[in-house]
Design a protein around this nucleic acid. Structure first.
Ligand SMILES: NC(=O)c1ccc[n+]([C@@H]2O[C@H](COP(=O)([O-])OP(=O)(O)OC[C@H]3O[C@@H](n4cnc5c(N)ncnc54)[C@H](O)[C@@H]3O)[C@@H](O)[C@H]2O)c1
Ligand SMILES: NC(=O)c1ccc[n+]([C@@H]2O[C@H](COP(=O)([O-])OP(=O)(O)OC[C@H]3O[C@@H](n4cnc5c(N)ncnc54)[C@H](O)[C@@H]3O)[C@@H](O)[C@H]2O)c1
Lengths: 211, 211
DNA sequence: GTAACGCTGTGATTTATATCACAATGCACT
DNA sequence: AGTGCATTGTGATATAAATCACAGCGTTAC
């Protein structure tokens, strides 16, 4: 399904949707022009229009894009029918922050289970979410139809946790551990490398100090 | 300085350095081949060699790259002479997790000050780091020579905080708030959009379910 | 009704990024 | 010393992504 759509485009569509939702909530506007959305997203107007092409949404000249319809079209494209469930593994400092943040947000993308190998955590409820022991994973995933997981365990544990997740049926990973996870091609991995990103920011900050 | 080096290359160099450090620590090896480093980093061997070209580091055929020297060369390229200082603004759930993580790590890239507008936090010490009130920023930045900052405040506050940071002399931002920050071209912004990344992982997970 | 305008949709083009492919290199072995 | 061979360094090439530029259209103004 949609074998050809690019990673970058999906990311921008997700961003557009969030911006459009804000626009709808705050400004009570009904239509938006490509250049307006582009400015909010930090891209060019042509880029926005190209992305609209991908999802097959048509605006109208002179009026622009109907915000409500567009949000719906993006949702139709990005979202699962119904609710898509997500698990989180590793309820440490970072895991807890993410869990708290997503609790009660995004109605159609929900963290429904968390896992940790710390026996003090298994069985407890954290930010409204039940924490399970690792060995419960296959059962829980089957019951809750989980196919996406967030990995926030220490780097040394990340590969083995990823293997366990893949074996339990996960096809999408959001990985915060600073390691390149080895997974089958049938699994998608999105890496969030905070350390590298900070080094990039620091490097370019120094570059700009000259100017 | 190095006006032409690409964002992506800098990110990979940072990654290589971390991988090489691990290699040196764990395996006690002295040399590494491009294809070996490539596999660890999840890129192709040609990519690694091209990146080496950028920093002007030369390996030797048949032996590969001298790990120690290479780490040093990358450092010479990426790092500031001495220690580069970083500030963090918004000591909430995410900010605290990041602060704790970086405390006592990376000796040449150090979070030296945190800021929050919550009067209960200003004046306290969190993970070994003094928390200042927002109005102390210009003074602290000048004293500690801060030019890079991490933004972990709520989305609604992010633009105004960014403006304050830029006014205080920051040239590099690592932004976790889900907004496109408007800054002068002389400032570099690296966005970490966790929500969008999670939606990407979920989307491609669904795509892969078919296969 | 119709003319003028400003926006959309999209083929063509440019720019950025990654890969290929192979000559040059230097070590290991004889 | 010479030969073989796996690896480097890099020009050429391929692929991916973004931008340009403009025809065509719907809306508005009159
Ligand atoms: N916190 C940050 O700002 C930050 C920054 C960069 C990278 N990271 C990475 O994110 C990850 C998590 O960081 P953190 O600061 O939350 O660490 P943490 O130590 O606070 O949390 C790790 C959690 O994982 C659990 N865990 C350990 N091994 C496990 C296993 N095999 N199975 C299941 N659970 C296991 C631990 O019990 C703990 O709760 C690490 O890989 C770290 O390198 C974090
Ligand atoms: N936690 C996550 O997993 C997550 C995920 C996606 C995005 N984010 C984004 O990261 C940011 C922080 O998230 P969080 O969960 O840590 O939120 P949080 O509410 O826990 O923390 C925000 C902190 O910022 C401080 N603050 C508020 N306004 C400020 C101002 N004007 N100046 C200085 N400090 C100020 C608050 O006192 C608080 O300590 C938010 O923008 C959020 O959207 C977080």
């Amino acid at each position: 399904m949609n074998a050809q759509i690019s990673d970058k485009t999906v990311g921008r569509l997700s961003l557009y949707r969030r911006l459009l939702s804000n626009l709808l909530r705050e400004k009570e506007e009904e239509f938006v022009f490509s250049h307006r959305l582009a400015r909010a997203a930090g891209v060019t107007a042509a880029q926005v229009r190209r992305d609209m092409m991908v999802i097959g949404y048509n605006g109208s000249p002179k009026k622009g894009y109907a915000i409500g319809d567009l949000i719906e079209s993006i949702g139709y494209f990005l979202d699962a029918p119904g609710v898509q469930t997500v698990a989180l593994v590793g309820v440490g400092n970072l895991g807890r922050a993410i869990l708290t943040y997503f609790a009660g947000r995004r109605p159609n993308l929900k963290i429904v289970a968390v896992f940790d190998n710390d026996p003090n955590k298994a069985g407890t409820v954290i930010s409204g979410c039940r924490c399970y022991a690792m060995q419960d994973m296959p059962e829980v995933f089957k019951e809750k139809k989980v196919n996406t997981a967030i990995v926030t365990v220490p780097a040394s544990q990340a590969q083995s946790v990823a293997d366990t997740l893949v074996a339990a049926g996960v096809r999408g990973l959001l990985n915060f551990a600073p390691v390149n996870l080895r997974v089958p091609v049938s699994v998608y991995v999105e890496d969030m490398d905070i350390t590298t990103s900070l080094e990039k920011a620091a490097f370019f900050a120094r570059c700009r100090m000259a100017s």
